[in-house]
């Protein structure tokens, strides 16, 4: 439904649109089944990044503040609600990760 506005053609661009991040995109990452981390976290990454690099550079540093968590054992990945089985060599773009996609996993 459109906004009820004082004037017609009320239209402004998103303040988080992809072009504001150069060649990068934002990706949200959420850990299921572990409430130590209160909320998923948001990261800025190049879509050409491989999944392996994404794990070592982005995900592992984030989850390592839980001393009981094994960053080698991350599994059960979902992308925007659907299960995926990512290959290490695939890029985020190959996996279909888009701007502001949400990836979740279990540990």
């Amino acid at each position: 439904m459109p906004v009820t506005a004082l004037y017609p053609e009320y239209k402004y661009p998103s303040r988080s649109r992809q072009e504001l991040y150069g060649d990068d995109i934002l990706v949200h990452v959420g850990l299921r089944g572990n409430r130590l981390f209160a909320a998923p976290s948001t990261h800025r990454v190049p879509p050409a990044m491989t999944f392996a690099a994404f794990l070592t550079d982005i995900v592992t540093p984030w989850v390592s503040s839980d001393p009981e968590l094994d960053p080698q054992g991350l599994r059960g990945w979902t992308l925007d609600g659907s299960a995926i089985t990512p290959e290490d060599t695939a890029t985020l773009a190959d996996l279909g990760v888009g701007h502001k996609s949400l990836l979740t996993f279990e540990a």
Partner: peptide
């Protein structure tokens, strides 16, 4: 314990998810 990731925010209320 500090959460080092920047929280994902709700587009409307702007609280972390």
């Amino acid at each position: 314990f500090f959460n080092t990731g920047l929280p994902q925010l709700c587009q409307v209320c702007q609280l972390p998810m």
